[in-house]
Design a protein around this nucleic acid. Structure first.
Lengths: 326, 326
DNA sequence: CTAAAATATGGTATCGGTTTCATATCACAA
DNA sequence: TTGTGATATGAAACCGATACCATATTTTAG
């Protein structure tokens, strides 16, 4: 492919002059500029961004590590992050970690080798000790020492779910979440607060007849059979708060298969509020996370960090979605 | 960040020797190797892939241009493509084009500047004339002169849908698709063949009481109101074949709101077969595309192309999914 | 014991740009 | 006419690696 040198030779000038024309910097005589521009067009010269990255010491590439980009919620996040990055002139590299700690660390190493300018990190693994401060990182839904993070208000989400369910004066309530939510878990993500907000609100209203179902977290996807089985013992619940809409879906199906009507007999509230295009049954009552705002915030925080500006943690408000299941 | 030069200086050797150690090439004395390896560990040297890309003249980066990465089907494709690329040691850059022709062309230009090693292109725009052969490209679901493409067997999909619906001896059938499917459209994607396979099969069985609804294609998402309105005039249809599961969802909701029962009164067949996690209502009867196989094929074809090997077009088989709507 | 082959290492050009510095020309004011 | 600042341009160092070539040392073969 044609290089600057080629352009310079044809124009009978030095490469520095060509560089000045391309970057529109310094002094260049009008005729010289025009001649160079003409030659650039003629031989279809395109600047080599790799070489530029080399001297500029920056690539304009941001990496996004996440567990599964095909996950409904994450794929929305990914989309909006890419759009936001594009606005700032950055390109996005996507890496699926599959929630695998080793792979995550390997990816981070690889991305450093590739000199990405920054990283958006979405993980529930305990990798705090491996994170060196030599790469600008912003974390989603997870606090790491020394890294700014962005999340939505999970505590308020749990709180609202509790209040909505309590309105119907239920006999018994249920929370269903993954075991990363459990009291024994050493990993504390922001998501933990959904449960916390829910439980503390119940307690606040002196409601104590509630149970927790915790399912093993594997690949972020929902272990249908396990949940169905656990649910058997709690078919007497009047209201169920689920950690995600995906879980809510499984729960609703199981309830109906067991002869319960939703929402008449049991109210079900999910979480995330991603409008799927395949939920032709009903709309799930849910707590909606502001995905686009979260994405924009992730990006602007990261760019602040890259530019050496002050950054801070951000928690964005959630919204209650009145659906047809509660 | 530490460079090879730094390592060489500390080890008291030339940079060429360091290079040999890192790449495990050429002759290096055992003690020298160990000393260099120790220093690399000590100062936490990591090779600069940008500089490597520079000399090697390749980046190990593949770009994926697609309309909307948050689209249910595409996000699955994206996920599997990334995984397949990772297997081959490639990184993936994702670019949303929003189906915008200008943006697509701009992205291609930008990606060339960034010297990506190859491109996976998913577009329905007419950009054939702008594609230069100086970048290895594989196209999904779309034929471009000079480019290999990968698709699933859309014709067979339409054929099967027709045969399934005909089994119930219907009075009237319906096809609903976007206007890129229309006879007046100048753009011919592989997707067109869903309609073709459907219609030609109906004709083959001498069934002629069918209608087509075409909705304006905007951003790949489904114009709910438009379809509902058009559907009003065809509530007497006994079977409907929809261009996607998303459309099927809209259609089923509308039918039920109009007092029709699905599948008792009207059979509905969708397309794509992506198992959404929010379809708690029912499973849509659909034609499933083999997303993972398609992804793997896209990647291996592209890599063949990059390596200068012979490539060919691939059409993978689809599968009928017996759901609860037909 | 010597020539040839294998081992070991460093210098340097190169990839394709950016940027600093030196030099040259020009216009204009003193 | 000459000094000065603005304009114009090129040579060369540098970014951080790879790879070729030259040279030096050691090993092996004859």
């Amino acid at each position: 492919m044609a290089s600057m040198k080629e352009v310079a030779k044809r124009a009978g000038v030095g490469i520095a002059t060509v560089s000045r024309v391309i970057n529109n910097s310094g002094y260049v005589k009008k005729e010289t500029r025009e001649k160079i521009e003409r030659i650039i067009r003629e031989i279809e010269y395109v600047p080599n961004e790799i070489a530029r990255s080399m001297t500029r010491q920056q690539t304009q590439i941001i990496a996004f590590i996440l567990p599964h980009s095909n996950h409904v919620f994450f794929s929305q996040l990914l989309y909006h992050v890419e759009n936001a990055l594009y606005q700032y002139g950055y390109k996005m590299m996507v890496c699926n970690s599959g929630s695998n700690k080793e792979k995550e660390l390997d990816l981070i190493r690889m991305l450093k080798n590739n000199r990405v300018d920054g990283l958006i990190l979405l993980t529930s693994n305990d990798i705090e000790q491996y994170i060196k401060p030599n790469l600008p990182i912003v974390s989603f839904d997870r606090r790491f020492k020394g890294l700014p993070f962005v999340a939505s208000d999970n505590y308020a989400g749990g709180q609202i779910a509790a209040e909505v369910l309590l309105k119907n004066h239920p006999k018994k309530l249920l929370f269903i979440g993954d075991d990363a939510q459990g009291p024994l878990s050493t990993i504390e993500t922001e998501v933990t607060k959904r449960r916390l907000g829910f439980v503390e609100t119940l307690e606040k209203y002196h409601f104590s007849n509630y149970e927790m179902i915790e399912y093993p977290l594997a690949d972020l996807f929902v272990p249908k059979n396990y949940i169905e089985q656990q649910l058997e013992a709690h078919l007497d619940a009047c209201g169920i708060f689920c950690i995600s809409d995906m879980v809510a879906e499984v729960v609703i199906k199981k309830l109906e298969a067991s002869g319960k009507r939703v929402p008449e007999d049991v109210k079900v509230i999910g979480y995330d509020g991603t409008k799927s295009y395949l939920n032709f049954g009903r709309t799930i009552t849910s707590i909606e996370q502001p995905i686009q705002a979260l994405s924009k915030c992730l990006v602007s925080t990261l760019i602040d960090k890259i530019r050496g500006r002050e950054t801070e943690n951000t928690i964005l408000p959630i919204r209650f979605i009145k659906g047809e299941t509660a």
